[in-house]
Structure formats: C-alpha cells, structure tokens
C-alpha cells in the first residue's frame, strides 16, 4: 500500500506539467464557459420561447454541455491514458520504474488509479461548473427561470453514470498505451472504436451494450423525466443507473485491468 501511495504521489508530481493533466481542468472550464456564453447571448430569443420553465431551461442547458462532453469523453480518456503512460515511453523510464524497490503491482495500479482520478476530476468539474454557470445565468437573466428548478441530484447521477460507463474504455486504452509507445496505435484503435461505438449507440443496435466505446453515449440517454412521488403535478429528472451496459463496462474494466497487470509482470523491459 505504501508503494502504491508513493507511486500515486509521484504520478501527480510528474504529470502536473503535462497536457493530459491540464486538459482535465481546461476542458470543463472551456466547454461550460462557452455554452454559458452562448445561452447568455441568445437569452433574449430563449426567453420568448412559449411555455418556458426552469425545468426545460435546465434540461436545455445541461443537455448542451452533456452532449458536447459525452462526445469528447472517449477521446479525453484516450488522451489521458496515453499521457500517463507516454511520460514513461518518452523518457525511457520504464526500466527505472521497474528497478525501484516498489512492486510492479503498485506502479501499475497507481498509474491506473491516477488516470481514473483525472477522469473523476474532469467529470466533477463538469458537474460543478454546470450547476455554477446555470445558477449564474439565473442571476444574470432571471427571466430564464433557472432559479425555479433544481436538478443537481439528477446531474450528479448522470455524471456518476458517465464515469462508470467510461471505465471499460479506460482499461482498454490504458493497456494499449502501456504496451505501445507509439501514440498513433492506441489513438487510432481508440478513435475507430469510439466512432464505431457511437454509430452503434445512435442506431440503437441490439448488442451495442456489449461495446464499451458506446457506453458513454448510452449513459447520456439514461436521463429521464418522471412525476414526483409525493408532490402532485411536479416533475423530476431521474437516472437509471444500473443498466446492463454498465455491468458490461465494469466487467470489461476489471478483466482488462487484471489482464494488464499480468502483461506488465511478464513484460521484459528491452
């Protein structure tokens, strides 16, 4: 455990000056600020929408962010997974890492866990910034009725589902980036698989749930609307968290993660 924590600290120390790390921070800021600015500049037109209410506004606003982010998430995972392993490929430091008095398991698990933390950080920032910028719009333009409705809980559930749905892709991309030093290989495979996954998801193919790369898109569709239980005539958003594609993604993540460790253990550092 000590080796794991030391490796985790080292991962942060090494990566804090890399593109992968800053992408996890800049991307949520850039997307949320752009969508917020877009909504604000179009506010006069939006206000005139018939039957406008806070629920619709939040759905429209969070949907705009989620759609952009859901599309970018697999590519972000590809970038981050390569970034964490690419540092070692570029500096030729695998030989150093594996000749330290730290178990290979600790080094491997810390790298994986750190990549996962970057995704968590990115998604958490998206969640926080969606809520903050939505409320900011409500303050700047009260006519948009953002303050009338709250969907923080449902948004948190969507982002949680997005995170869990991304773990299958993470394990696969992490392993590919670990094995190949050439960025084009994991990037190429990930890109094709992501496009394929999106098409399968969009076409609602029967077995799309078996493809981890289609899971983030499927997660976005899980945000539904229902009548509140105790309060008449009030609606709420809900997320069906534990769907079959989520289980497929989690099983894929665990199996590939363990397989990756055995590959690392047997890997000779040439």
């Amino acid at each position: 455990m000590k080796g794991f924590l030391l490796s985790l600290r080292s991962e942060f120390f090494k990566s804090r000056k890399t593109l992968g790390f800053w992408a996890a921070i800049i991307m949520p800021f850039a997307i949320c600020v752009l969508v917020c600015w877009g909504m604000y500049s179009e506010s006069e037109r939006i206000i005139k929408t018939p039957a406008l209410n806070g629920m619709l506004m939040w759905r429209m606003y969070s949907g705009a962010i989620l759609n952009v982010m859901g599309f970018l998430l697999p590519f972000f995972i590809i970038l981050v997974a390569y970034s964490v392993n690419g540092i070692e490929h570029k500096a030729d430091t695998w030989k150093t890492l594996f000749s330290l008095p730290i178990s290979k398991w600790s080094v491997y698990a810390a790298k994986y866990f750190y990549t996962m933390l970057m995704i968590v950080m990115c998604l958490a920032l998206f969640l926080i910034l969606t809520i903050v910028t939505g409320n900011l719009l409500g303050m700047l333009k009260p006519q948009m009725k953002f303050t009338e409705f709250h969907m923080e809980g449902a948004l948190a559930m969507v982002y949680l589902k997005l995170f869990l749905s991304s773990l299958g892709i993470l394990s696969i991309q992490f392993l590919l980036s670990l094995v190949w030093s050439d960025f084009l290989k994991p990037m190429g495979i990930g890109f094709i698989a992501t496009i394929g996954g999106m098409i399968c998801s969009a076409m609602r193919l029967t077995y799309a749930y078996l493809i981890p790369y289609s899971h983030p898109m499927m997660a976005l569709e899980s945000l539904g609307l229902r009548r509140k239980k105790d309060v008449k005539m009030q609606m709420e958003f809900y997320v069906d968290l534990f769907t079959k594609e989520l289980y497929v993604g989690l099983v894929t993540a665990v199996v590939v993660f363990i397989a990756g460790y055995y590959i690392v253990q047997r890997k000779s550092v040439k």
Partner: peptide
C-alpha cells in the same frame, strides 16, 4: 533493489521536469 542504484544505457530522465 533497495540496495542497488542503477544507470542503464542513456539516462532515464523526464525532459519536461
């Protein structure tokens, strides 16, 4: 390994640090 220090081929150094 806790008692060994090594330098193999060209030094393994993180260029961005």
């Amino acid at each position: 390994l806790s008692q060994v220090g090594s330098l193999i081929e060209q030094p393994a150094i993180y260029g961005h640090l």
